[in-house]
């Protein structure tokens, strides 16, 4: 109990009953993943299982490799010339790093939301319709309309933009832009949604709105979120992985990571001794 008392004084609170994985279905599995940027090793032998219909948070100090690892999960590291990924990553049992797999197809199943909202310089409607169009998800205009409206509704944005669907997406506020990006991602009908610090460019109110949204989306998707904000990880995630210097240090139910960390480094990080 001495340990628990020590962390009572930290500013991370987890509401009772939260921060515990309820799902048991494994969506993604990483086995011995290494990432190199040129000669520099960014990720060292990471293995983990990620549960479906839950929120998994990656925390750790800057430069610890959490974003790099996140980008392995939809092969976004392919777009960086000098990045080299080895090891196996399974999505529903299929190795997405295998040479037979088309990364474009992987990314259609594993969507991503970025740190800075990046709506395309197109209308709100066109932003959301972009994915369904390239993947041929709608065969008629009506179906496309339904997908766009449904995605905006699930991202909690429809009420705010319904009257101006054909105005530029770049004209929305930062928080609305980020929800537009989430809607755009949902519209592709992904199974997994990766979020790379999705609220770090937003004000607290817009952040809270996104957090609520993430909690709602958990019902249907496997969500993996990288965050710098430990309270955020504690509030919204069921599982938390702590990365340090490219190594996965500890991966447990969120409540255990915050209230009962086993590793010294985790303990030091969440009690604010570094990071």
């Amino acid at each position: 109990m001495a340990l628990a008392e020590q962390f009572d004084s930290s500013n991370v609170d987890i509401p009772p009953g939260k921060g515990v994985a309820t799902s048991t279905e494994v969506k993604m599995v990483a086995e011995g993943v290494d990432v190199y940027y040129g000669d520099k090793q960014a990720i060292d032998n990471v293995s983990m299982e990620i549960l479906d219909k839950s929120v998994t948070a990656f925390i750790g100090p800057s430069g610890c490799g959490k974003s790099t690892f996140l980008r392995c999960l939809n092969r976004m590291n392919d777009t960086i010339d000098i990045a080299k990924v080895t090891g196996r990553i399974y999505l529903d049992g299929e190795d997405i790093n295998s040479s037979e797999v088309d990364p474009v197809q992987v990314r259609a199943r594993v969507g991503m939301v970025f740190q800075k909202p990046n709506p395309f310089p197109k209308s709100i409607y066109e932003n959301v319709a972009y994915g369904p169009r390239i993947h041929g998800l709608a065969s008629t205009r009506e179906e496309l309309d339904d997908i766009v409206k449904g995605s905006l509704a699930r991202a909690g944005l429809l009420d705010e933009v319904e009257s101006r669907m054909h105005e530029p997406g770049t004209g929305l506020s930062g928080g609305q832009q980020q929800r537009l990006c989430i809607a755009r991602c949902i519209a592709c009908n992904p199974e997994v949604i990766l979020m790379d610090e999705p609220t770090s460019a937003l004000d607290p109110i817009a952040s809270a709105r996104i957090e609520e949204l993430i909690d709602e989306l958990r019902e249907n998707y496997c969500i993996i979120i990288v965050t710098h904000n430990m309270q955020q990880a504690a509030r919204i995630s069921q599982k938390t992985a702590f990365f340090h210097l490219g190594v996965l240090v500890e991966y447990e139910n969120t409540v255990d990571i915050f209230n009962n960390p086993r590793d010294e480094r985790t303990k030091d990080y969440i009690s604010g001794r570094f990071g």
């Binding site: 939809n74 976004m76 777009t79 474009v104 197809q105 992987v106 990314r107 259609a108 199943r109 969507g111 991503m112 970025f114 800075k116 990046n118 709506p119 395309f120 310089p121 197109k122 972009y130 994915g131 390239i134 993947h135 990006c181 755009r184 991602c185 592709c188 990766l194």
Partner: peptide
């Protein structure tokens, strides 16, 4: 044209040429 727009498009499963034709060139 910001790299973030290309990343956004790639992350939705667009190919390079779709990204260029539908995002980069219009931008």
């Amino acid at each position: 044209v910001p790299q973030s727009l290309r990343d956004g498009s790639f992350a939705m499963g667009a190919t390079k040429s779709e990204t260029i034709r539908k995002v980069v060139l219009p931008a």
